Simulated scan of single mutants.
Amino acid sequence: MLQLAGVLADETHPAELTLKSLDPHEHAVVARGERRFALDLNWSGVRRLCHQPGCDNQPVDNQIVVCTEHLAQCDVHALLTMTRESGHYAAPETDPALLEGLPEPDLLVTAAVGIGAYTEVVQAWLDTCFIPLNEIDDMLFTEDRALAMRHSLERERLRLDRVAGKEARRLRGDTRMCQACGTQLLGWDMRAHPLYCSRACSPAHPPAPFLAAFPV
């Protein structure tokens, strides 16, 4: 219980602990608000659990609060929330070059491609992790620092475009026609699901019920 108290000490939204399940010989699952924890009753360990009720996997990290399996099932609102949380967590790094190539945005944009939300998610990452392009000159007062930020921002945008393109090709596979209108798929509209020719044809992704309470 002391380990659990330590884990909960940094929680910003106080809430009562609720017992969700109990195996007297193995572990108990408790929840505080949206966060779930497994308490191992044999060796007194504590593990954070994926926010999806009933899932025993650990989340990616404290900002991406679902496991990799359920990340692919998130809606755009949940993805944007976790993208901004993750970006703000990384943002204090003073050298913009060290913000390039992090694994978290790769996971987030890969999930976003599958629901036709790549452009929103990649922009949320760049705007929170880096300085927005139109604000660089106002926030960085030396030409060298401003230039370094611009270069890092554009390199990361291009890198994430490549990550997204790879996932789009995987999802499209051998499909050659738009699944809505039958138009031949010649390229990928980054605003749409890869199986559709445009955002107009791409279906809206329904809210994910286990993350519907997430603010945006």
Rank of each mutant, 00 (worst) to 15 (best):
A9Y: 11
L17H: 02
L19V: 01
K20S: 15
S21Y: 11
P24N: 04
H25N: 14
E26V: 09
H27N: 12
G33R: 01
G33M: 03
F37P: 03
F37A: 08
A38D: 12
N42K: 15
W43Q: 14
W43P: 14
S44N: 10
S44L: 05
R47C: 15
L49I: 03
Q52Y: 14
D56C: 10
Q58C: 14
Q63K: 10
Q63I: 03
Q63F: 10
C67F: 02
C67S: 01
D75P: 01
H77G: 08
A78K: 01
T81F: 15
M82K: 07
T83W: 11
E85S: 13
S86V: 03
E93F: 04
E93K: 02
T94Y: 07
T94C: 06
G101K: 05
L102Q: 04
E104N: 12
E104M: 02
P105V: 11
P105A: 06
D106V: 13
V109T: 04
V109F: 12
A117Q: 05
E120G: 04
V121A: 00
V122R: 11
L126A: 04
L126Q: 06
T128L: 07
I131R: 09
I131S: 08
P132E: 02
P132D: 01
E135V: 01
D137S: 09
M139D: 05
L140S: 08
E143G: 05
A146R: 03
A148R: 03
S152E: 02
L153C: 09
R155I: 11
E156M: 00
R157I: 09
L160S: 06
V163S: 10
A164P: 03
K166G: 07
R169I: 03
L171W: 08
R172E: 09
D174I: 08
M177E: 15
C178L: 14
Q179T: 02
Q179N: 11
C181K: 14
L185N: 12
L186E: 13
L186V: 14
G187T: 15
G187R: 15
A192Y: 00
Y196W: 10
Y196T: 10
R199E: 13
R199W: 13
S202C: 02
P203W: 01
A204Y: 00
P209M: 10
L211V: 14
A213I: 04
F214D: 11
P215M: 07
